[in-house]
Nucleic acid binder design. Structure first.
Lengths: 136, 136
DNA sequence: ATACACTCCGTACTATACTACGGAGTCAAG
DNA sequence: CTTGACTCCGTAGTATAGTACGGAGTGTAT
């Protein structure tokens, strides 16, 4: 099985056909050769590339970042250190997001502890705090 | 100063004029009375409500959730416990997101440790892992 | 040979939360 | 009374990552 249709690639990579066309438009995967009918003919590597994209996404990279990662991969002027740099930037990014979420969580836990869960909404400490809270 | 224009409310609440109109369309704030000219006339409480929205957003609530929070607040059949329930659901939601981010971070840290930062991209363990990684 | 699945394309829609635009009308200060 | 800032409205655009649609053409199995 040398070349595959878009549907076969989609199944093997675990994505939708429309997603592949979308990635093509975004420049994440190159335009494959076509049959006379216009049908796309993908080589095996297309599946690898789609999996790369999926894996990178799972690690928190956006499509724009993945695009860069894919370009750097084939750029002879790029070194492993550049990739490492992107990974480190992503780690910092994730840490920032975790920090923000932890902050939210701690405020919510605090408010939640103040609320006995009894009484009407007019005396709910959570709602009161939301009305008056003077943070930032 | 009994009533205010949309611009004055925007400044006091720290949001944009367009944002207020947007919230009105979304039903987050009620339509205020109008002057003969059509200008909106806001009472002071409008500022409180906008601040409520801002605070709730900072705690991770979406506009849809805030909408619910605001409805429940004035619903006589709603108790403090219902609000507490929403807060707890949000805490769980945030914890889930933190978990997901922690997972990403740990994989990235692992990959990062494998990469010496030396050599070309063709032998970068990070890129290799992204191509082959068999998680999920 | 015909039925049915697959593919083509561009466009539009989903969700989230705004932000910008343009042209007309209004308000307040000088 | 004029000027400049403000407000009105609906629509469209931003970013992210797809998903859906519809009508026409294609591939293949029976």
């Amino acid at each position: 099985m040398k070349s595959m249709t878009i549907g076969q690639v989609a199944i093997q990579a675990g994505v939708g056909v429309e997603t592949i066309r979308f990635y093509e438009r975004r420049g994440l995967i190159e335009e494959p050769p076509r049959r006379d009918s216009g049908y796309r003919e993908y080589p095996q590597e297309a599946v690898t590339r789609l999996r790369f994209i999926k894996h990178a996404q799972r690690l928190g990279f956006t499509l724009a970042e993945i695009s860069e990662l894919l370009s750097l991969r084939v750029d002879p002027n790029t070194s492993c250190a550049d990739i490492k740099g992107l990974a480190e930037a992503k780690i910092a990014d994730i840490e920032g997001r975790i920090q923000a979420l932890e902050k939210m969580k701690s405020v919510l836990l605090d408010l939640n502890a103040q609320c006995g869960g009894r009484g009407s909404t007019s005396e709910c400490p959570i709602l009161e705090a939301l009305e008056t809270e003077e943070c930032c």
